[in-house]
């Protein structure tokens, strides 16, 4: 059964100018955040290139990107999807269930990490073949040694 328009009450009477301004502002904001994210991405790239990449520094930058992403998500949902204009209870019914993600993410990642530790402990081959080799910066290219002609070859 299609419902007629009489059920619908939610007319946005926002006037054109304020609305367009808001959209414009949000667009610029999203673009700026994205550009900052990309810059951080390049910073991480350069840290990796360096001689001794600091794991903590990289982690800090990655954390920053995550926070910026959540900010971006907030603006898309609140402004573009107009969730910010809805009644608070409706916002809550959507935001509160998403809290489940906290435990969802935490438990999965902790167990993933623990699986790695288990394998490193009990599977020597796994550890040897996959552990990052720390002695050189890990983007440093390799130069093969000049080959010595081996007897019996050619």
């Amino acid at each position: 059964m299609e419902h007629t328009s009489s059920e619908i009450t939610f007319h946005h009477h926002t006037d054109d100018e304020t609305f367009k301004k808001k959209v414009k502002k949000t667009t610029i904001l999203l673009s700026i955040i994205t550009i900052i994210e990309l810059l951080i991405g390049l910073v991480i790239y350069n840290i990796h290139k360096g001689e001794n990449p600091s794991a903590y520094l990289v982690l800090a930058f990655k954390g920053m990107v995550c926070i910026l992403t959540i900010a971006k998500a907030y603006y898309i949902v609140a402004v573009f999807m107009h969730l910010g204009d809805e009644i608070r209870n409706f916002i809550m019914t959507i935001v509160v269930p998403l809290m489940l993600f906290i435990w969802f993410i935490a438990a999965f990642l902790i167990d993933g990490n623990s699986y790695k530790n288990l394998r490193n402990d009990y599977d020597k081959h796994f550890k040897e073949t996959t552990s990052p080799r720390p002695h050189h910066g890990h983007e440093a290219p390799a130069k093969p040694e000049a080959p010595k002609p081996e007897p019996g070859k050619q």
Binding site: G41, L42, H48, D111, K116, T130, S131, E139
Partner: peptide, 19 residues
């Protein structure tokens, strides 16, 4: 995405996306 993260956390090495 969480599955992806779980697998990534279970590895000692993961490629750098910039590369």
């Amino acid at each position: 995405l969480i599955s992806y993260g779980t697998i990534r956390f279970s590895q000692n090495f993961w490629p750098d996306p910039n590369v």
